[in-house]
């Protein structure tokens, strides 16, 4: 990337982040919602699922983090589609800037938002009694892995954003896709209790792989297998959806 592309990307990432200042609802979207999920799972379901809220929290927090992360990847697409619909993209494209900087700027900003939500969930989790059972290196590894996966998965939402005509449809698509992916997985329960067919799906599901890797890195347990498996998924998602998205992006804008 040239210096100009870097600068343009930085400016456009700033632009996305500074929007939050004027739209507190967006802050709620990626702050309050994940915390609500955290409280819901810990205190409403926790006792029944694991005997006590605290015990369940240790299992579920990595899953909640993964679920929140996947839902949040849809923001990238929603934002892009909004920009196209509102004409902001036309203005940007009439300027002599690096062609892909509007896309890159949004992705960079969304990674920063993801990092914020991740820290928030860990902080609130700590208040509720969650303890990182490994070391700082493993925790950093979890962070890096989660953000890498987030970028990879956000290509799906970029592609959807380029194919649908309004932002709401990106949201609906995301919900329909991510809801089953995150619940039919090892994010919240052990797939061993599921019926055979669902268990097969849950075990092959990338959400399970990422949840297992995050769990291993934060609380201990098997790490190498799930981490490698997650990285393979991240590479595969990027290899398939990034070129498709870029092609659709070129065609649409």
């Amino acid at each position: 990337m040239s210096t100009m592309a870097f600068r343009n990307t930085g400016t456009l990432a700033w632009r996305t982040l500074v929007q939050i200042k004027h739209n507190p609802f967006e802050l709620m979207d990626f702050s309050i919602q994940p915390v609500m999920f955290l409280l819901l799972f810990t205190y409403v379901f926790g006792g029944q699922l694991a005997g006590s809220p605290k015990e369940y929290l240790a299992f579920a927090l990595p899953g909640i983090i993964v679920q929140n992360l996947l839902f949040a990847t849809m923001n990238t697409g929603v934002g892009l589609n909004t920009d196209i619909n509102k004409g902001v993209f036309d203005r940007l494209r009439s300027l002599p800037i690096a062609r892909f900087s509007p896309l890159a700027g949004r992705i960079v900003a969304d990674v920063i938002k993801q990092a914020w939500a991740l820290l928030l969930l860990l902080a609130v989790g700590a208040l509720l009694g969650f303890r990182i059972g490994t070391g700082p290196l493993e925790a950093l590894g979890a962070f890096a892995l989660l953000l890498t996966f987030a970028v990879a998965a956000s290509w799906i939402s970029v592609l959807v954003a380029m194919l649908v005509d309004e932002p709401d449809k990106v949201q609906i698509f995301g919900f329909v896709l991510i809801f089953p992916l995150t619940f039919a997985s090892s994010a919240f329960v052990r797939p061993s209790t599921m019926p055979g067919w669902l268990r097969a799906f849950a075990e092959a599901n990338p959400t399970s792989v990422l949840a297992d890797a995050t769990r291993g890195l934060l609380t201990g347990g098997p790490v190498a297998g799930p981490v490698i498996h997650s990285l393979i998924w991240a590479v595969a998602l990027t290899a398939v959806f990034a070129p498709l998205s870029v092609r659709a992006f070129r065609r649409r804008v």
Binding site: R15, V18, Q19, H22, N23, K86, G87, V88, D90, R91, S94, L95, P96
Partner: peptide, 18 residues
């Protein structure tokens, strides 16, 4: 793009920025 400025019914400002 270096020469032109565009104001239009479609090209627009960002409503969420000041």
């Amino acid at each position: 793009r270096r020469l032109i400025g565009l104001t239009g019914q479609y090209a627009s400002v960002d409503e969420q920025l000041t």
